[in-house]
Design a protein around this nucleic acid. Structure first.
Lengths: 341, 341
DNA sequence: CTGTTAGCGCTTTCAA
DNA sequence: TTGAAAGCGCTAACAG
């Protein structure tokens, strides 16, 4: 049978309370006593039962998720995943509240972070805007002993314990290789599209994309980046114009959201061979477009995985326990028509 | 505060024991009483605390993993993941034992399954060989009330509760599209490679591969499948011969293991442009080959994910609780040089 | 500084 | 058919 606190108390010749104090690193134990207990723990190979401990503590993990009130499909999916996790959480001694903040609003995000801190939750997860004020606010939470995790978009130089999101430079490079190789010898320029170059993830994707194109497909002309503000209408308009301006357009890489507009423009595109298209995020629209051969590949980050991972990391941080590193690496999923889930 | 068994006992005007009997569907409760309790559960929105229940039961989940004593990198990785999970399990009231059986040996696998059943574990996970005898043995376990999960390779028509592995037909199709598109207009035939056509996963991969080639790249000549028995030496020899016999060989799809041999043959290949190569399973060898531009893409199944998923499903089955379906779908990971983990 | 004792939420004898 | 009471492994007052 696995040894329990009782066994180690007996073995060390002390009471349960003392064992508990040593186990939890609380003060008020004479060094000699502490050593006896530690020796017993070592000797019996004791590992504490976290479930029992949490039960005794009456612990309820309390986490706050702060998400941008952005209306694109990806953010909707992310919110749905947080919601689902919150519901499951009831079964597992976890209270998870979700708060919306206006998108791309630094002041609002800072306020939300400070606000979240006031309730003294065990952990906070949020989609970062990469700004010094936000970094400072995140660090204030860490200062209070609250575990902080960034979600989808990271915050450089901050003391957040973890980033639950993909490597966007690698994603951009992957898109570049896919697009370059799918194009093969087909002539014509390539159009990069983003939501906004102010957002770190889009910027990094284009950076990765650009470097691969320069390294491996140097002959290919790259048009200037168009910014569609993650808005389907705006994006659609920009693409339509580009298709007219460049009848020989060979490829499109859409690093941002608003792909419904891109897809509509492609459908309307009409005559000629359509360009090779790689986009981000598997949504209803991009999924259908892939199935109908309107686009060629979708890079995706799994919102469900990101949310579950953020929760696991926050829990582990609260318990001071370890995570399985490999499980918390968010993959860059590549979907072709053939491996749609 | 979340309602507990005490609350519902009070609300229903019965004792804890009766509540427990109803909760666990045990006999010996008058229908009228049962209904009172069920009404209280409903009214208070009670959800049982599984951790507390397991503590009280002194439950230790007991699972057996049966893996082929196959020496390729993938199986080694799989065994390492099971080992790691077993170690973590000590912390989480789980006893996980791993048993080896000779690879591709139906009788040995059947014996191992029957043997596992004798210890009456809560669940068994194993890499299936798709044969009627194995199916019967698996069903015998299910009959005993043991949860059964197949791992990596599935068992058609059996009563296993879950398959923790990838969709191999889709994987083959994906490989086909990648290879076909990477080839573009480059002339020359394509060589499919497998470990053995007796194994279901390899067969399915080639099936998917073949259908995509026929549908979308009909002009491309496909050479007869070569079987390398998942052995590096044998596979290397076959590829070397093929390279000599077909100097214009344009592509290779390796659906099985033994890729070290393939890679060596490619390195030796020397003169001319090397074929476009897509293989399965990210190992040390395939990873290096990808980084060095010796091969073009790796399809992968995440052994760690498969093992963790199998465990989650077995646990859920034992507890009669639900899983997050999306979390248990094993992805077909696609790795290019640019998104290596 | 250390020990005693009463739980956390649930299950399980053993009586009634 | 039902209930009282003890206890799973751990923590947290409260004494001493």
């Amino acid at each position: 049978m696995k040894p329990t606190v009782h066994d180690i108390a007996a073995h060390a010749g002390v009471s349960l309370a003392t064992v508990d104090r040593v186990l939890n690193g609380r003060a008020g134990v004479r060094p000699a006593t502490r050593e006896k207990v530690e020796a017993a723990i070592e000797a019996l190979g004791f590992v504490r039962d976290v479930a029992a401990a949490n039960l005794a503590k009456g612990r309820v993990y309390s986490f706050v998720f702060i998400l941008p009130a952005n209306d694109n499909s990806f953010m909707q999916a992310l919110r749905a995943e947080v919601q689902a996790a919150a519901e499951r959480g009831r079964r597992e001694r976890m209270s998870l509240v979700m708060r919306d903040v206006p998108a791309f609003d630094i002041a609002a995000l800072v306020a939300a972070l400070d606000d979240a801190g006031r309730d003294r939750p065990d952990g906070v997860a949020f989609v970062a805007i990469d700004a010094p004020e936000v970094r400072a606010a995140a660090d204030r939470l860490v200062e209070q002993g609250i575990a902080v995790v960034t979600l989808v978009s990271d915050l450089s130089g901050s003391r957040r314990v973890h980033f639950a999101g993909i490597d966007n430079i690698a994603a951009g490079r992957t898109a570049g290789t896919l697009l370059g190789r799918f194009l093969g010898g087909r002539p014509g320029p390539v159009l990069p599209l983003a939501g906004s170059l102010m957002v770190r993830d889009h910027r990094e994707r284009l950076e990765g994309f650009g470097s691969v194109m320069a390294e491996r497909f140097a002959a290919r002309a790259i048009l200037p980046v168009l910014e569609g503000r993650d808005d389907p209408v705006e994006t659609g308009r920009l693409v339509q114009e580009a298709l007219l301006a460049h009848p020989d357009l060979a490829g499109i890489y859409s690093a941002g959201a608003g792909n419904r507009g891109l897809i509509r423009a492609l459908q309307a595109g009409g005559s000629g061979v359509r360009p090779v298209v790689i986009v981000h995020e598997l949504t209803g629209a991009t999924r259908d477009a892939l199935a109908q051969d309107l686009i060629d590949g979708v890079l995706n980050q799994d919102a469900g995985h990101e949310v579950r991972s953020a929760i696991r990391v926050l829990k582990a941080e609260t318990d001071r326990s370890a995570v399985v590193a490999a499980q918390e690496r968010i993959r860059i999923d590549i979907f072709l028509k053939d491996n749609l889930p």
